[in-house]
Design a protein around this nucleic acid. Sequence first.
DNA 1: ACCTGAACACCGTTCAAGT
DNA 2: ACCTGAACACCGTTCAAGT
Lengths: 197, 197
Amino acid sequence: MGRPKAGEPELGRELIAETALDILDSEGLEALSLSQIARVLNVQTSALYWYFKSKAALYEYLCELIFRRVLDDVDPSLTGRDLLYAFGRGFRSNARSSRDAAKLISVGGVSEGLRTELIPGLLRRVAVGGISPLEARQAVTAIEALSLGWAIFEGSQNPVVGEVMRQTNDQNDSAFERALHALAYGFGTDSAKKNPA
Amino acid sequence: MGRPKAGEPELGRELIAETALDILDSEGLEALSLSQIARVLNVQTSALYWYFKSKAALYEYLCELIFRRVLDDVDPSLTGRDLLYAFGRGFRSNARSSRDAAKLISVGGVSEGLRTELIPGLLRRVAVGGISPLEARQAVTAIEALSLGWAIFEGSQNPVVGEVMRQTNDQNDSAFERALHALAYGFGTDSAKKNPA
DNA sequence: ACCTGAACACCGTTCAAGT
DNA sequence: ACCTGAACACCGTTCAAGT
């Protein structure tokens, strides 16, 4: 044991990341450690440092992976506000399908690929029609924030969301969708520009 | 050393919590450990267990403390949608004033006082006029989610918000305020109930 | 190139023992 | 009641050494 057995998948960034997401799913963020990953993979903890220079680097990689999956699930033909809406839905449903994924994102750093490739691409697709680049950036920020925050509360035992959860899932889904809709389609319109009395 | 000196503040939940928030502020969530708190306070780590039964219990206490401060800053005469708006602003500005406070909230659990006292009180103040209790719960959830998510992105090096940050603070503030307004005043209205084509 | 094995400083938690 | 001191299992990281 400890050495590659025939028939066993080869150690690498992919396998390490998948194992990490499995642990995140089954045991939560607290239990997600390099030691635990190594234990599952039957290697020494130090072996992981050949593929990731630190725990933070692994976390960045995981965040990018999650983000990439969300974008892959979104209809590529969508643009503008419809894209905003679909992105928010995908972000939350993905975060909800994997326990503590939202916590990971809130704690993990931002990778190079995310900063230079994925986000700019998303922004370009949102900034169409009457939506300026600045407006697109602000809207994406708002959608990301709502979806991430919502997923965090859903994952935790938050009392507010907890109550909402105890109602039917339909009602809860619609609560999120209503908020999302208010943001995606209400942001930057006249009704959102007015200040309250 | 190690024993209470005359003139030194007495060890207790208050002092431990304040020290913890100081560390959170100056060194971030990663550096916030029981050992570090004990080191600053010149006591043994095990001494802290007299006041908190675990690290998680301390985190809960800190979350409740932060939440309480946010509510204390909100004009007590506000109700309904105006309260929603003010609560969101306070939540984010408080989270922003203390580094990694948002991360702490996303990771920390929910205390008894928060669940049974603070949140129900907030809900009661929101559910006035044309706003039903269910609607109030959903709206508070949405506002909390947006404000928490926004604060997390602000605290991190998120690329989207990072870009927005590099613009003037006014612009960034107004981006958040616009999103907040869309939620507080757009949620539950006719425009938010319609589904996109 | 890829992994082991040992070492280091740090962490959360428990518990007997002191005062 | 309140705190020390020692112990335990676990963690991230480094690095020489093997193949």
